[in-house]
Design a binder for these strands. Structure first.
Lengths: 291, 291
DNA sequence: TCATAACTATCGGTATAACCGATTGATCAT
DNA sequence: ATGATCAATCGGTTATACCGATAGTTATGA
């Protein structure tokens, strides 16, 4: 039994005329006759009575017709949901994002949701390591993070935009009046930084080392929001990319001079995993936003 | 898209391993790979991610899986109902019967219904002409009637049993004490007979004519039950086949001598219409009953 | 690190069966 | 009667489902 035969059968049952049904189905009458016969043989029962030059559906045919129609409808529904998925009328988008880039997500999520309200979005915060592991098992569709050498060639990355590291201070802080700050001067400021292991912290640590600078780190935190809350008290400063402080107008960013500490925000995909349309559209929206 | 491909897809989704699925499906791995690919091309979307030597179902695949399963289930249901029909677990039996033979139906309906309680039975009473018309358009499965020349060769008939015509009287009637009655003596008895046009009446009329007998018909009725009710009053007698009075122990049948008035109960089928199993079993039960 | 096993994709060839046109045989309308 | 209509059948062609072999990849283990 094949869907083809069910289609033939249904049309034949509708018009009760093999010749006409065959025309409708764009096949020859002989083919239709054969296929119906084949279906009848498989079911072990006649679906039509051949009375004279007419056909009439049998009780069995009528009973079977319901199920044939249903089966065909199911395949149509299945096709439709795939179309919906392609047109972003359904589905789920699973985003992985590191803490440092979480701030830039908000705007895109808002506009994406407005355009495609039927798409469900889940956001997974985590360290790069955690997220790449999730990406590996396709738990998330892509990872937004700062660029790092791909440890595994099952991943491919592309750069979204550059974002410089800057000193983040509260306006009440004494250095808040400065237009810029030299990297050497960072040593004299009490800093609150992301905990070691955080991507940005490791990058910073590396940059300090290369410039023989030993900053005075007073607080380490594994949560960027808490970190920014501490900065808001005015007791500490921190160093983050500009992108990380997006949407926090109460805080001030002061460019750091004497060192090039530009990070590249990037998106990472699994090499082999199908890139669902929702993911492609979403990342295009991120890239088209100004940073 | 064909059911074959859906089966392949479903099994593949279940074991997430083409090689194993191919074994389960008794096809080669290459064939499975090709068929899945074909399905994916038709849907315009990947159903599986091929990551390394593994496959993983995509979001689209998961969505589609539900519908594929449903479609397949529908065909199974369709097959099952056909099987049930063959096994007499469902379906409808439409019986056409002339008034004269309606009495003999009761016992068979009772025992058939006991054996196959899920089969719905409808009984259509009517004249032979009406019933044969219904048989022609397959509104009924067969006709139980007294044998007559098949006016149309789209019908085929077979004899069920012989049934003699007899005088039907109520015990209170004056002739009730007689063991037999000669056909000539019928002329002296007030008769209530089926209306002209009724098969039995026409047969009787013909027999009377051939024997130069003119009975005194006092009442004509187009309903056998009403006729028998009249006979029960003791005021009239009637002439019917023995079969017609089956199940009426309150009435007495007196054989008519001096004339051979044997009728043949028969079953008539449409030549070309599929004989459903319920109908075949039912008629076999009728034939196996004693008359 | 290298070999091996496990797994999927692809290629070329074969066999099956879907398909067609022509024909037959039947029925229906005129 | 006669032609029109319709389904079944036959023989031949084409499409394709299928297979085995193989390539290419990844995971496993010595």
């Amino acid at each position: 039994m094949e869907l083809r035969q069910l289609k033939y059968f249904i049309r034949s049952a509708e018009v009760l005329n093999f010749t006409e049904a065959a025309n409708d189905l764009f096949i020859s009458q002989s083919t239709l006759s054969q296929q119906i016969k084949q279906l009848e043989e498989e079911l072990g029962i006649l679906l039509f009575d051949r009375v004279g030059k007419r056909i009439r559906i049998t009780e069995a045919g009528n009973l079977f017709l319901t199920y044939a129609r249903q089966a065909l409808q199911d395949t149509k529904n299945g096709k439709q949901i795939i179309e919906d998925l392609k047109e972003l009328k359904t589905g789920t988008l699973n985003i992985g994002v590191t803490y440092g880039l979480s701030a830039l997500l908000t705007d895109t999520i808002v506009s994406f949701s407005k355009l495609y309200p039927q798409i469900k979005i889940t956001v997974d915060f985590g360290t790069s390591e955690d997220l790449l592991e999730e990406l590996k098992i396709a738990k998330i569709d892509f990872v937004l993070s700062f660029l790092q050498l791909p440890a595994d060639d099952i991943f491919v990355s592309q750069v979204l935009f550059d974002s410089k590291l800057a000193l983040v201070v509260h306006p009440s802080h004494s250095v808040a009046k400065e237009k810029t700050i030299d990297v050497k001067d960072l040593q004299s400021i009490s800093l609150a930084l992301p905990a070691k292991g955080f991507n940005t912290r490791d990058f910073l640590e590396d940059a300090f080392k290369k410039n023989n600078i030993s900053p005075s780190v007073k607080v380490e935190l594994n949560d960027i929001n808490m970190l920014l809350q501490l900065v808001e008290t005015g007791n500490w400063c921190t160093v983050l990319t500009m992108a990380s402080v997006k949407g926090r107008p109460d805080l001030q960013t002061i460019p750091i001079t004497g060192i090039d500490i530009t990070r590249q925000a990037s998106i990472t995909w699994h090499k082999d995993v199908y890139r669902k349309k929702a993911a492609l559209v979403f990342t295009e929206m991120i890239q088209s936003q100004k940073h």
